[in-house]
Design a binder for these strands. Structure first.
Lengths: 337, 337
DNA sequence: TTGTATGCGTTATCAG
DNA sequence: CTGATAACGCATACAA
């Protein structure tokens, strides 16, 4: 096992200097830094989080409470976080948080006691519980919210602009000449649902396009519900030429229904989704959608967490990260009647 | 923060004695033990796992190295493992293992040094590297293999019977009167690919059914490749009435292609997949497939790990867990010509 | 800009 | 059966 002392020896410097390099201290000569970094590489040195945690009197762990085990969102977020953690010499304590168990506080306390993490990342729906916020504050643990419903005073949050993204996606469709655009929305109890729908309507309004009542159907973010919704939409006398589904899973359902009805995508019907999930690439044609910047979110989360909680009056910022519209093959010019 | 020293002071004994009590050592007087336990309770003492790990150079962590971040397999496995860990007072150290970085040994050593786990769970493709096995053995870390290519001497493994499952799935199809059954296989470098194909052929052989060369296409486990394969299959003069895809993703592609060609599933074409992944439930009709027993696998893995490595001659068992055929809606009686 | 000495909370050694 | 003291690997006053 190679320790910091070995590296110091190899580089011909003291352990403290090596420590400085690792924690990228300010005042250090470039030459020394390079020497140390070379030594670390040669020896294949990896700092031990345990030892480090010991004298920093806080575990290097970052806790993350997730609720929905089946969501690809979580898997991708974890992956991004994991990669960041390696670079930051930290580790992830992932915890399944049973949403159905009403005693959220109890679950959270048990988790804290067990893992001793003092940094937490909260995703929906846990990120919206003020009881949880209070608990964490009283126990002095830092936390950042990912895509919370609303910004919480005194808590940092990271999100993307769902509404803007949806508007852009819709404008994209409009740019292709579409005028009859329908929307399949998500679960009514989810903020993103509202935001995405608003973005859609905003784009339509700006373009002077009308959205008939019948052009908005609820899909609850689920494949099965969306299939029913798409069926209704595509059976309308004035059939839409494009459908914006509030997530990829529902967009996939839409494509499938279109196929069943003998409609070609994108020639007869353009479809866009949201999330850039696995579905977006495993559907044919591949889906035009919007990607959340998981890597950036993970990095931002770690950065936000790094700044110590300090005084309660601490500046708590809400970061709005840039999303990305992914153009693939599910959109084409509106068919001429 | 209350430390072992505080407890020692309160109980009027030495720190070592407290340590002994915590690790329930043999030779200790009942009276002393009670004194110490009382002190621990009064002070609300909780041992710091970090300090312990530092000294013992081993943590309560279970390491798991995963390669493919996009696989739903990993997410489901992690979830199952996580739930088991909570009950067992252990924790999971999930690590992304860059398959493309050729220095597997280096990566693994760094991980071991950093986390000090001495229990490891290996999934494909890492589970098949004998270099890795040697490393772990030399460092005295326990490991269990999940679905390895072949059983490794001196290593415990957990798997399901891919061949049997495939045979049953195929027999299921045959039971519905299908005779012209085609197969879309996986990546040629993956064992499961071979096993699943063998199971398929075995069932056909037993039923006295022939499998023309043209009825086997390679899909590489990927949606896009499978779509091409399905297209070929469904364009054959003697079109198959059923297709067994070696995983759900490819089965989903098959259904999509069928739809595009105006074929109804399952009326005109029956389709089965493998894995019971997200795709199985988000395809229409829902897929008949085989489910891996993730919960049982996780439990078995922890059990196997619990038994100490002890002597090298230790019994290393290979557990073959029961899979489950999930009957959904993608299979129907063969159409009459 | 860099090095020396000390401590973090726990377990292990080896003596009593 | 029990206790003083040295590790474990790293960070940080304090000094140079």
């Amino acid at each position: 096992m190679v320790t910091i002392t070995d590296v110091a020896g190899q580089a011909g410097v003291s352990v403290k200097t090596v420590s400085r390099v690792m924690n990228n201290y300010e005042h250090i000569s470039v030459k020394t830094r390079q020497k140390v970094e070379a030594a670390m590489r040669e020896l294949g040195y990896a700092p031990k989080s345990m030892a480090r945690a010991l004298n920093m009197s806080s575990s290097a762990g970052i806790g993350i409470l997730y609720g929905d085990p089946s969501s690809g969102y979580q898997a991708r977020l974890n992956h991004a976080l994991l990669k960041q953690c390696v670079g930051a010499e930290r580790f992830l304590s992932v915890e399944y948080f049973d949403e159905k168990n009403p005693d959220w506080i109890g679950q959270a306390e048990a988790f804290l006691d067990r893992t001793k993490v003092d940094d937490l990342i909260l995703v929906p729906p846990m990120c919206d519980s003020s009881e949880l916020h209070d608990l964490f504050r009283s126990r002095q643990v830092n936390f950042v919210l990912l895509s919370p419903s609303s910004s919480i005073a005194g808590a940092s949050a990271i999100t993307i602009d769902d509404r803007l993204a949806s508007r852009q996606l819709t404008e994209n469709l409009i740019g292709f000449g579409h005028q009859r655009i329908a929307h399949i929305s998500g679960r009514p109890d989810h903020v993103a649902t509202l935001l995405r729908r608003q973005g859609f309507e905003e784009a339509m309004l700006r373009a002077g396009l009308v959205v008939p009542q019948t052009y908005i159907e609820e899909g609850r973010f689920r494949f099965a519900n969306a299939a029913i919704a798409a069926n209704k939409l595509l059976s309308l006398p004035e059939r839409p030429t494009a459908i914006f589904a509030a997530n990829d899973e529902m967009a996939a359902a839409t494509i499938m229904v279109a196929n069943q009805k003998g409609l070609r995508v994108p020639e007869d019907l353009s479809v866009v989704g949201f999330d850039d999930s696995l579905f977006a690439q495993t559907t044919w044609p591949a889906l035009t959608t919007v990607a959340q910047p998981f890597e950036a979110m993970a990095k931002a989360a770690l950065d936000l967490l790094r700044s110590p909680i300090g005084n309660v009056e601490t500046k708590s910022q809400t970061l709005i990260l840039e999303h990305q519209i992914i153009d693939r093959d599910s959109v084409a010019h509106a068919p001429v009647d």
